[in-house]
Amino acid sequence: MTLFLQLGFQGVALGMVYALIALGFVIMTKGSNTFNFAHGEFVAVGAYVVVALMPHLPYWMAFIGSVVVTVTLALVAERLLLRRLVSASPTALILATLALAVIVHALVLVVWGVGTKGSAGPVGSGTVEIGDVVLTYSGIATIGTSILVLLALLVFFRWTSYGLALRATASHQEAAAAQGIDVGRMFALSWGIAAALAVVASIFLASFPRIVSPTIGLVALAAIPAVVIGGLDSFVGAVVGGLVVGLIQVLGAGYLTDYGGGRLHEVLPYVLMLVVLVLRPYGLFGSRGIERV
Results as ranks from 00 to 15, higher is better:
231 G>M: 03
232 L>V: 13
232 L>G: 02
233 D>K: 03
234 S>C: 04
235 F>W: 06
236 V>K: 12
236 V>R: 13
237 G>S: 11
237 G>A: 13
238 A>C: 14
239 V>C: 05
239 V>N: 03
239 V>E: 04
240 V>L: 09
240 V>M: 05
241 G>S: 13
241 G>Q: 09
241 G>C: 12
242 G>F: 14
242 G>W: 11
242 G>K: 01
243 L>C: 11
244 V>L: 10
245 V>S: 09
245 V>E: 08
246 G>T: 11
246 G>L: 06
247 L>I: 15
247 L>V: 15
247 L>W: 11
247 L>E: 10
248 I>E: 00
248 I>P: 00
248 I>D: 00
248 I>A: 06
248 I>S: 00
248 I>W: 00
249 Q>L: 11
249 Q>W: 07
249 Q>D: 13
249 Q>K: 13
250 V>Y: 02
250 V>H: 01
250 V>F: 05
251 L>E: 09
251 L>H: 05
252 G>P: 01
252 G>C: 08
253 A>G: 15
254 G>L: 08
254 G>P: 00
254 G>S: 10
256 L>S: 07
256 L>M: 13
256 L>C: 06
257 T>K: 05
257 T>P: 02
258 D>T: 06
258 D>A: 14
259 Y>D: 04
259 Y>T: 10
260 G>T: 09
260 G>F: 08
260 G>L: 12
260 G>H: 10
262 G>F: 01
262 G>I: 02
262 G>E: 10
262 G>C: 07
